[in-house]
Computed example of a mutant assay.
Amino acid sequence: MHGGSAYGLWMLVILNSAIFIFIAFSFTTPKTKTDWRSLGAFSAFIVALFTEMYGFPLTIYFLSGWLAENYPGIDFLSHDNGHLLHTLLGLEGNAHWDPLHIASNVLIILGFFLLSAAWSVLHKAQQTHSLATSGWYARCRHPQYIAFILIMFGFLLQWPTLPTLVMFPVLVVVYVRLAKREEKMAIKEFGDEYLRYMEATPAWIPKISVDKKQTI
């Protein structure tokens, strides 16, 4: 028997989705069309995630035959067993304290920290119509998109679903394209200054150390 209240908790779907979208919104305070597109893509992922986590477990129903055959005796409609990686990998104990879930929480927290720090620098630069090259922007050119990717990957570690597994690589491509579009706009606006910044700063893999005397 599984608990009847494990799913169908639509108020939790709405509440959790609203909380994480609001946090992302408050950290990014989107102003441009690109800002809204990046936040919108992230919001779609969050809604899909919590819909399956608390609303309707589409992935579990879709895989129910395979799960029942390979994991007999396990009630996958129990909320704890919705942590599919915990069960499929044969991990024991509370799923909320396994290595995957801990790593997930670390990635999510780091992602939101990076998102806040990166957008603070970016918006200050936008207000002064200057190039953002300090803080995390001194380490990589697209820290805000790296942050969104870290958060989404963190959620995938603790609660993978078929929709979010499909959405994740698609959204990564979306962010890469948005980043390239932003760079074209930055080259038009800042010219050689941005080209020098591109030469000195990696796009996606942050530099471990930054030379404070480095000039762009």
Results as ranks from 00 to 15, higher is better:
Asp75Tyr: 08
Arg37Gly: 06
Val166Ser: 14
Gly135Val: 09
Thr51Val: 05
Leu88Ser: 01
Val13Met: 00
Ala6Trp: 08
Gly40Leu: 07
Thr201Tyr: 02
Leu9Asn: 15
Met185Trp: 10
Val173Ile: 15
Gly8Trp: 03
Gln127Ser: 12
Pro57Gly: 03
His96Ile: 08
Asn94Gly: 01
Trp10Arg: 04
Leu84Ile: 11
Leu162Met: 09
Met152Lys: 01
Val174Thr: 11
Leu162His: 01
Phe25Gln: 00
Asp211Gly: 14
Lys184Asp: 07
Phe56Asn: 02
Thr201Val: 14
Leu85Asn: 05
Met152Pro: 00
Phe27Glu: 01
Glu183His: 04
Phe20His: 00
Leu110Gly: 14
Phe45Arg: 01
Pro206Lys: 11
Gly135Ser: 06
Ser116Leu: 10
Phe50Ile: 04
Ile74Trp: 00
Thr59Lys: 06
Asn16Tyr: 15
Phe155Val: 03
Val170Leu: 13
Ser120Lys: 11
Trp119Phe: 09
Tyr61Cys: 14
Phe22Val: 13
Asp35Ala: 07
Gly90Tyr: 09
His123Tyr: 10
Pro99His: 00
Lys213Gly: 11
Ile19Asn: 05
Thr59His: 03
His129Pro: 02
Gly82Arg: 12
Leu9Cys: 12
Gly191Phe: 11
Ala103Pro: 02
Val174Glu: 13
Phe25Ser: 01
Leu150Ala: 04
Pro206Gln: 13
Val47Phe: 07
Arg139Phe: 02
Asp192Glu: 14
Arg139Lys: 11
Phe42Tyr: 13
Leu195Ile: 14
Ser26Tyr: 11
Leu114Gln: 05
Phe153Ile: 10
Phe113Leu: 13
Phe50Ser: 02
Met152Val: 09
Ala147His: 10
Met152Cys: 07
Leu122Ile: 06
Trp119Ala: 00
Val166Cys: 15
Trp66Phe: 10
Phe76Val: 12
Ala132Lys: 02
